[in-house]
Design a protein around this nucleic acid. Structure first.
Lengths: 215, 215
DNA sequence: TTCCGATTTGCCCCAAAGGACAATATCGCT
DNA sequence: AGCGATATTGTCCTTTGGGGCAAATCGGAA
């Protein structure tokens, strides 16, 4: 099947890679492995989503750097670090940067499988949330520039006449735009429109950390 | 002044406590220290908010346990762990449980001060967010049971007549309740009311992890 | 028993939103 | 020139939301 998550193993140690790979396949996971972070980055475009088992210490691009790159790409797949000689500051940094776990080699089969399950579980819920958000954003992106202006003002509670005045048109025109907006957002009530605006952060007084579109 | 944050040091090692305490006071912080987690818990009721410097390994109640207790109490002050003999799994667990940092003794003055600054900064923004949320919740808590029902239905886009039918009263009654709701929430427009409902999670299709009231 | 808050409701009126039907005006692209 | 998307506007009518004014009911607290 094509919907199942894939476990991506990124480690320059071939023997370790194949060993882990074998264990995971036996446990029923689909696995893809890469001998360097750069190779993984090149392949990621059309890779299937899932979680990443990542070695910290690798030539050229290290695990933490790869993590940073993925964050920049808004690719928030859960990352489980695995390292032979990790230290506390590194583990702290990795977790604070959003890693799902930080394990020391050698890793027991059970520990690894548990970590993967946790990661996939969390990923599924995050993904679901993102999907919902993206579908809303795509609805909004179908609005024309003008409709967007009207949308922004109406969900802030402005009256049609106020919006008309502010945009320099007539009240009748605003009604027309408003009608199209409701239609394009596929909502039946004004309340739903406001709700959407709130969810995508169109409202909100200040500060909206990250959150972009995610595949 | 009474608005400045206080650094709470929790460590059974008296000499370490006094040493750190001295450093922090010189740097301009207000400090309070406790020789055990339980003592800190007893004092926390009327303690001033700030961040916590916490030793992992202590008799009776350990640092991680204290952290759990604070989470249960919805007391999310930033925690900076400091430990003499920490290991990676412990640090991972602490950070995943929300700790701000995990430092190993001995800690350089600079590292500590930087960590504290980060912690206080983050805390301020979280606190601000919580404050906004709590003020909204307190507004809502002023609603009567009936008003709450009406509120819940109106922000979902139900028409007055629908609400009236569902609650078994007349449309005029709903109008009256609606008027009171708007007044108590101190909003001028229906859009603002929906916005509030969305922010406090009254809407939302499913799943709302944690988030309770916080002092 | 009396007072208060919560709940209910009627009548009447105004403002705002929404929709039907129709038409004009631009602008870019074929 | 012609087409399609976008923006604009008008008139008319209906549905909703919002309030003013007044009043009745009910249950618990003083």
């Amino acid at each position: 099947m094509n919907g199942a998550p894939v476990i991506h193993i990124v480690d320059d140690d071939t023997s370790f890679r194949t060993a882990i790979s074998r264990v995971l396949k036996v446990s029923g996971y689909e696995v893809a492995d890469y001998d360097s972070a750069t190779r993984f980055l090149r392949a990621i475009e059309d890779a299937r989503p899932g979680c990443i088992l990542l070695d910290v210490k690798m030539p050229a691009l290290g695990g933490l750097q790869l993590q940073e790159e993925l964050v920049k790409l808004s690719l928030r797949w859960p990352i489980i670090f695995m390292t032979g000689h990790g230290d506390i500051p590194t583990s702290v940094r990795a977790i604070k940067a959003g890693a799902e776990d930080f394990l020391s080699k050698p890793v027991s089969k059970q520990t690894l499988l548990e970590a993967i399950e946790r990661a996939l579980l969390r990923h599924a819920s995050i993904q679901q949330h993102q999907d919902r958000l993206n579908s809303l954003k795509s609805l909004i992106s179908a609005l024309t520039a003008r409709e967007n202006e009207v949308f922004a003002l109406m969900v802030r509670g402005k009256l049609n006449k106020q919006i008309a005045h502010q945009l320099g048109t007539s009240e009748r025109t605003i009604k027309a735009h408003r009608h199209v907006v409701m239609h394009k957002l596929r909502v039946q009530s004004f309340a739903e429109a406001v709700s959407i605006a709130e969810r995508v952060g169109l409202l909100a007084p200040s500060a909206s950390p990250d959150a972009k579109d995610v595949s």
